[in-house]
């Protein structure tokens, strides 16, 4: 793994998030495998177990998930300055590329090579989102109750058009109530 201990942490963070911003195609959860690789495995800024909490937090705030994740990681590693640097890193690649397209490359979309390139990438992005699901659920030690909840959330969002933010809010409240109820029952027994 690449480790540059001499590089200042802010520069390291900017470059890492620039890379994430550069290769995040398809938006939303397409960045999950990439951010996990860079932030958890390569840099160790966020622990494996913390990664899900990061995703839950990123969903509970408005704004793009990639931007929200970079704000959290930036803040955790280097405070408010860190979060601003990380956000710049995530945003700048798309900013420059879109500016370039808006200014000059109006025909960009109809270029057959670009079109073919993206035809190859689209199913790959879906595979990269789907493949880690099994190992993630195992790593988190999800039981049958957890799997049932995950399946319910997946169906509600994908097929019934429920808002992820609202489901997160409802789940948070229900888990809290369930936890308190369970604790009371244990104390009572």
């Amino acid at each position: 793994m690449l480790k540059e201990p001499k590089m200042p942490i802010l520069l390291q963070m900017f470059l890492t998030f620039f890379k994430i911003g550069m290769f995040t195609l398809g938006g939303g959860y397409a960045m999950v495998p990439l951010i996990q690789r860079e932030i958890v495995e390569k840099r160790g800024w966020v622990e494996e177990s913390e990664f899900f909490e990061l995703l839950a937090l990123a969903q509970s705030s408005p704004g793009p998930i990639a931007v929200n994740s970079s704000i959290f990681v930036g803040y955790k590693v280097a405070g408010v300055t860190g979060s601003i640097v990380a956000t710049l890193g995530t945003t700048l690649p798309s900013f420059f590329i879109i500016l370039l397209i808006a200014a000059w490359l109006v025909g960009f979309r109809s270029n057959p090579h670009v079109e073919a390139f993206f035809k190859g990438i689209r199913p790959a992005v879906v595979a990269m989102i789907a493949a880690p699901l099994f190992s993630l659920s195992r790593a988190m030690g999800i039981g049958w109750k957890g799997l049932a909840l995950a399946a319910a959330v997946a169906v509600l969002v994908a097929f019934a058009g429920f808002s992820p933010a609202i489901l997160i809010g409802i789940t948070a409240i229900c888990s809290l109530l369930y936890g308190i109820w369970q604790k009371r029952r244990q104390q009572g027994a």
Binding site: G26, G28, Y29, V32, F52, E53, L55, A56, Q59, R122, P123, V125, V126, I129, A130, L133, L136, S137, M140, I142, K145, G146, L147, L149, A150, A151, A152, V153, A154, V155, L156, V157, A158, F159, P164, L167, I168, T171, A172, C174, S175, L176, Y178, G179, I180
Partner: peptide, 27 residues
């Protein structure tokens, strides 16, 4: 307590993202 429930919910959200993307535009 809150995150005990949120973790499976996030797995559900990622699954939903993958399912939504399995469409005729991507495949």
């Amino acid at each position: 307590m809150i995150f005990a429930g949120l973790k499976p919910a996030i797995i559900g959200l990622i699954t939903a993202a993958a399912l939504t993307l399995m469409n005729s535009h991507n495949f």
